[in-house]
């Protein structure tokens, strides 16, 4: 379970940033008082155009960023007060995630397992299960730098799941991937749902959202414009498809 209440994040702008953004404001509000809830066994999708605040929100959920105000609860743990404890429950995967090119998949997975305090006996069982599931045994001892994009994505998945997290955060996980590699991620998200894990993901691809989501939230310029179930979203649609409806909601907010 993820519970977000009145989440607010602002960044102090340096003089150079003020110049780049063509503003005299000394602060920039990235996330403005948003609240939502993601339940176990459900997939929550966070939608928004570029610069809407999706990544900042997900980075606050994964405790990389500290919110300016508001509360975050991850599997019942206050993530602001006890970030170390909350991180043990989180698996984090982004489309831009890099891997240590000079390590092998085996070494990398073991390294992260140690960082997550996974017991050695559990590590071997989970590693073997994930390697079999993702068909990774053949390249487990090759340097990651020499692997294909698809193989690297499998390693990323394995790294994300090695500590069996209760909450999984996906930040545009399929961006820049070919359809076959993206399919691995789609399957992973579905598997997480069927295992009763809490899943939150952000995406630009409406077909993925339509295929996977149980709940949906739209944010724009840091503000939450919509948050409800996917079924309710579809029922309330006044345009013909998800993409046009999404554009309609974002544009309406600009006019208000």
């Amino acid at each position: 379970m993820i519970e977000v209440t009145n989440l607010y994040k602002e960044f102090i702008l340096s003089k150079q940033q003020q110049k780049e953004l063509n503003t005299t404001d000394k602060k920039s509000i990235a996330v403005n008082n948003i609240s939502f809830k993601c339940e176990p066994g459900k997939i929550f999708s966070l939608l928004g155009p570029n610069g809407a605040g999706k990544t900042t929100t997900l980075r606050m959920l994964s405790t990389i960023f500290k919110p300016t105000s508001g509360t975050i609860k991850i599997a019942g743990i206050d993530a602001i007060e006890y970030p170390q404890e909350a991180r043990k429950k989180i698996g984090f995967l982004t489309g831009s995630t890099g891997l240590y090119a000079r390590l092998t998949p085996n070494e990398l997975v073991e390294y992260f397992a140690k960082l997550y305090h996974v017991k050695h006996s559990d590590l071997n069982i989970r590693k073997d299960k994930l390697f079999t599931l993702l068909d990774m045994h053949d390249f487990q001892n090759k340097r990651i730098g020499k692997l294909s994009t698809g193989m690297k994505q499998k390693v990323s998945i394995c790294r994300t799941m090695i500590h069996d997290p209760q909450v999984i955060i996906f930040d545009e996980p399929t961006s820049g991937l070919d359809v076959i590699t993206a399919e691995n991620i789609i399957k992973l998200i579905k598997d997480c749902k069927s295992e009763g894990k809490t899943v939150i993901f952000s995406s630009h691809i409406m077909s993925e959202v339509d295929l996977l989501c149980d709940d949906i939230a739209i944010i724009h310029k840091g503000k939450l414009l919509y948050s409800d179930t996917m079924n309710e979203f579809k029922n309330q649609m006044i345009t013909e498809n998800l993409t046009t409806e999404f554009i309609h909601i974002v544009n309406s907010s600009k006019n208000n």
């Binding site: 405790t63 990389i64 170390q84 984090f92 831009s96 995630t97 960082l115 305090h117």
Partner: peptide
Amino acid sequence: ETLLTTPV
């Protein structure tokens, strides 16, 4: 980013 999401 991934390193910072670990409980270290």
